[in-house]
Design a binder for these strands. Sequence first.
DNA 1: GATATAATTTATAGTAATTCTAAATTATGG
DNA 2: CCATAATTTAGAATTACTATAAATTATATC
Lengths: 138, 138
Amino acid sequence: MPIELSATDRLRESGIRVTVPRRIIFQYLIDNKTHPTCDRIYNDLKDTNSSLSLATVYNVTEKLVQENLVNVFVAPDGEHHYDSITEFHGHLYCEQCMTIFDFKSKPDKIPDILKGAVIKSVSYMAVGHCPECAKKRK
Amino acid sequence: MPIELSATDRLRESGIRVTVPRRIIFQYLIDNKTHPTCDRIYNDLKDTNSSLSLATVYNVTEKLVQENLVNVFVAPDGEHHYDSITEFHGHLYCEQCMTIFDFKSKPDKIPDILKGAVIKSVSYMAVGHCPECAKKRK
DNA sequence: GATATAATTTATAGTAATTCTAAATTATGG
DNA sequence: CCATAATTTAGAATTACTATAAATTATATC
């Protein structure tokens, strides 16, 4: 069984300063694989971390993305969503309940026409209705 | 050779009212496969169509998406981009020149866990540097 | 452990994409 | 041509996100 590193350890490993906001936000993302937005993270953390600022959540999530500790993608709602699962997978965005579901998926090979391109990340987004919402619509 | 229907004919075919803004915006999207935003469409059309309003561009593009005449996707810039190519394909977003490149790609099968889901559209987005910008960086 | 300093956090103001609203205009069926 | 319902339009409102600058804090060095 591989040893799970804590948020703190993984921050230290990547060589950036370990601060309270970075620890709690990264740990929140590890614990909540619900693809939250900055606003969501802020609202869930502000009660137990009264000095936390929304601007800090924006700063920290951006830093975590730069350090490849989390992934970011823009959903059809136009908002940036954060994801501590960094392995490639697909997302289904349900237009009714606005939940984002994960599914297994392999990234496509980028074709020859784009040879020489540097790919930093890929995201696969399906838009529609999740099984539960689809059932309700019938 | 298949006969290319004009924007007007395709609007009429889909049963919605044919208006000047719908004709010129749809025709613009057919002619300009550059994944423009509403703002871009508006700025390119306003000089030759002085009564056109930005709000109308937002209204019309939304309607064209509803009627499946064009596709929409949200790029990493957080903006909605419109595309008159409705067949599935991948996009590469170049972070330097901010151009969006098309490439051939097949949509992934949505797995069993999401059986019952209704998929309305899918988009595959790679983020990085296009061949030209990648070369300049070296 | 105290201290210097550079990075980070924070509150607030600013920006820009998008949506809302309500009045004016226009497409279509009769 | 006329009625009417849909659409367009301008401008105000909203909101995700960014910029700014002062206060705070993590880390290296003594």
